[in-house]
Design a protein around this nucleic acid. Sequence first.
DNA 1: TTCTTTATTTCGTGTCACAAATTAAAGCTG
DNA 2: CAGCTTTAATTTGTGACACGAAATAAAGAA
Lengths: 407, 407
Amino acid sequence: MKTADPELMRAINRFHVVDAIRRFGPIARVEICERTELSPTTVSAITAALIDDRLIMPIAIGGVRDETARGRPRVQLTLNPDAAYVVGVKLAPDQITVATTNFRADVLESLTVPVRLARQSAAVIADLVEDGVRRSVADAGLTMAQVAGVCVGLPGIVARDAGVCRRSPIFGERDVPFAAALAARLAVPVTLDNDVNLVTLAEHWFGRGRGLDDFLVVSVEQSLGLGIIHRGEVFRAPNGLGPDLGDLLVRTPTGADVRLGEVASGAAILAEIAARSEPERAELLTGSGRGIIVARDLAEAGDADVTAVLAQAGVALGLVVANLIALFAPPRIILVGAVVDFGPPFLGPLTRTVEAWTPGGLGDVTEIVHQRWGDDIWARGAAAMTLRNLYGSPWNTTGPVTRRPPR
Amino acid sequence: MKTADPELMRAINRFHVVDAIRRFGPIARVEICERTELSPTTVSAITAALIDDRLIMPIAIGGVRDETARGRPRVQLTLNPDAAYVVGVKLAPDQITVATTNFRADVLESLTVPVRLARQSAAVIADLVEDGVRRSVADAGLTMAQVAGVCVGLPGIVARDAGVCRRSPIFGERDVPFAAALAARLAVPVTLDNDVNLVTLAEHWFGRGRGLDDFLVVSVEQSLGLGIIHRGEVFRAPNGLGPDLGDLLVRTPTGADVRLGEVASGAAILAEIAARSEPERAELLTGSGRGIIVARDLAEAGDADVTAVLAQAGVALGLVVANLIALFAPPRIILVGAVVDFGPPFLGPLTRTVEAWTPGGLGDVTEIVHQRWGDDIWARGAAAMTLRNLYGSPWNTTGPVTRRPPR
DNA sequence: TTCTTTATTTCGTGTCACAAATTAAAGCTG
DNA sequence: CAGCTTTAATTTGTGACACGAAATAAAGAA
């Protein structure tokens, strides 16, 4: 742990203030005092420094003032949306999504490039991402010089600290130093992260995890993922390794050991439905990037094969979710991803399995919810991840407050 | 998160100093500076306050001084062993272990009461523990007034913050407020914790987890448990809930879903061996508390039934361990407990299974070791858990350093 | 004895949070 | 509209802290 000195003290309190403004802004200084339990003096000093640095700004009009309001009106403070810009990138097997956001994580521009990445080398993918980022930034009316950072999310095992992707369905290769590759192309700081960590942060900031300090996110897209918020922070294994839920071992009803990803991932589900279909439908399901949509139509039409496969996957995932409850006892588990969006045919078996197998004594602990997102939430999460770092980073560290001009 | 003020600053740094002395003591102030990266000024001030409070003390003789040493000799500092005394208690299905330790977590006295707890009510168990604690404290030549705290560890699901045992093989009842019950009897602060968290802390302080900031402990006793050290701290679910590894779901080779505890726990293993034995041996295995010892003799004699059951349990646990690696990617997993002590018949199948199923890309991450402990390590861990709290607690909080008399 | 070296303490400075007092900016009152 | 009240925000003054620089302590070496 870092040793404590006045600078750390200031950094902590400044982070609290910025965080309060991000979460509850526009917000007046008095309210910041209440939320953070800092004294008015301290809040005043910190906000003055932040305004000096143009990270936050007072809002001209006081907003809706209470009818019966008395006294000096409150000055609302808000993040300066133009304090910085960041770019989030999400790599999926069949597409790249890029989003450019401002300092408030509002998406200014997002674009999706449909491309089957698995067939390409890491170098080519880096080229494609570079093009996407440059285009998105330009479309937002910005230049790369204004971009403070880029975060890339992708499925698989990612060593975040090193910026290396150990293994991913995206890359044929192992141990791809993708962050460095992209940083070299864009001349901007790049972080690499597990994609589910990004959607998890997005849930924490904008979604169903708002206000919660502990929850899990289980993502069922083409591949499976797990994100953990523990004590208000994204939980990471040493080296910043992210867990890959698809790697968990389960046994099929016949007693064979397989990875969960071979049973309950979007890819596996589509493959299984395809295997049970005539060739024409099979190609529709696995050939293009639209397999999930085809399958959803079939499910809605009540296709027995599809229903059976979804139910089987739901049960398999349900057992794993029951295990996650046993391990983490989270107040909430948020299910996200295209497969979750199938709804009852998948969620029904899943929740019934969870209920049946949740360990005794933990029955009342965990609530399971699901959330439907557009494509760009992942990229927005990536942007948020970059901002999360900026809020507490050195260029935010104003140095001693007293250095401000006495005006 | 707590807001930062000078007092917090001091508390953090004081903890670092105490922790350095605990881990590396006897240790001189200069070395504390190096280890903690605090300035000599700060270390001097903090150690002076600690000496004032009699939590630490200078050692008279400087120890082995280097031949070529020059200059003013270093003064070694060490924890004052008599600064406080704590008691650790471990509840197992067939015995209670109590250990009284000093402020350095040296065991002064330990005793084991063989008693089949499962048959008794929580009130009776509390009585028994009270007697054990009073006896152990008296044997150590202390009075209860000198005891700063008691920590009780037991298997099952424990809500540490509330001091409530949600469910345990020890108690027939659910939601037993055992901490309160014992505190009322002993008039001393009592904390309740999952037993594996205690042995995990013991590993961190005295065992194979020393110097590691991240590792897992998997315990295979009568029941199964998991302990996690994450960033140097015991990882706890919200509410201080501890995970119970025995609750994890696995499938048997025939495809049935069962809890891991029904396959790979000591209790399950003994029951299965007994089921394969003639009545006389069966009773030996499950009747008294000595079943494990009987089984170990059988295993050493090469009994085929025993070997087969152990192998089966090892494989089941191996699959779970592979999953834990997928989730936590820890640098080390420490296996402990009576069943682990069977050695190769159990560990062989386990490690082979882990190796076979560790997710690709994580093959080089985790090292699996095992550790043999005496009975009282659990109780020593419980004592350490209490000390862990004392080191940072209010009575340690000297208040402003400057308030010291100028002498 | 008088250096030299190393450990520890003292002194002085700068940062910080915060309580108390002050100022600011409104609405209310007669 | 001039005071009064109320609430928000800032300024002032104080105490705690970490730390660099200088001083002191306690040894061995010359």
